[in-house]
Amino acid sequence: MISKENAEHYIWGGNCDGWRLVDREGCSIIHEKMPPDSQEVRHFHQTAEQFFFVLSGCLHIEIAGTEHELHSHEGIEIPPNTPHQAMNRSDEAVEFLVISRPNTRGDRVLA
């Protein structure tokens, strides 16, 4: 069994949290938490396709120049080679899952 309490934890972007729930070569599932007014660096993945699914809060995500606003229990797919950037513009933390196939380790390119 895996949970936030026993998963590998890491900090990204200086103040955002990630928990590796599944970490295999063919797939990764990461539970992420972004505090208010935080964002990731715009990037793309050469091989991996991703699916972002919001657990709580509101996530803004720019995908290839179009911005989307996702709320709790909403998700969006991102194909390989598609520049994107996740942002939290709200006053509350946002928590979401990022499901990647295959794993994104070594597959990230700054856009």
Rank of each mutant, 00 (worst) to 15 (best):
W12E: 03
L110F: 13
I2D: 01
N6L: 07
K33C: 11
R101A: 14
R101L: 09
E69T: 13
I11F: 09
L59G: 10
E77A: 13
D107N: 01
D91L: 11
M1G: 15
R101K: 12
E25D: 02
Q50A: 11
V98E: 01
W19H: 06
V94Y: 08
S3D: 10
N6F: 03
G57A: 03
D107M: 06
C27A: 13
E74D: 05
I30G: 03
E5L: 08
E40V: 14
E92Q: 15
F51C: 00
E69Y: 07
H71L: 11
A48T: 04
V22H: 01
I30H: 01
E74N: 05
V98A: 01
E40T: 15
R105E: 12
V94E: 03
W19F: 12
R89K: 15
I29S: 01
R101S: 11
I99C: 11
R108L: 09
D107K: 01
G106L: 03
E74H: 08
F51A: 05
E95V: 03
I11T: 13
H68C: 12
T66Y: 12
E69R: 15
W19A: 04
N15M: 05
M1I: 07
P102I: 00
G18H: 04
L97V: 08
E8P: 05
V41H: 13
T47I: 14
G26I: 03
S100H: 00
P83R: 08
E95Q: 08
G26H: 11
F96S: 01
P35G: 10
D17F: 02
D23F: 01
T82E: 06
H84T: 08
S72R: 07
K4C: 07
R105F: 04
H84G: 05
E49Q: 13
T104R: 12
E92L: 01
K33P: 03
G65F: 04
V109H: 08
K4I: 00
D23N: 04
G13D: 04
S100A: 04
G75L: 14
H73C: 00
I29V: 15
F96Q: 02
W19R: 04
V54D: 03
K4Q: 07
F53Q: 03
H45F: 00
N103T: 04
E62L: 12
G18L: 01
K33S: 06
R42Q: 10
E67Y: 04
M1Y: 11
D23V: 00
E62A: 09
Q46I: 11
I2W: 01
F52Q: 09
A7E: 10
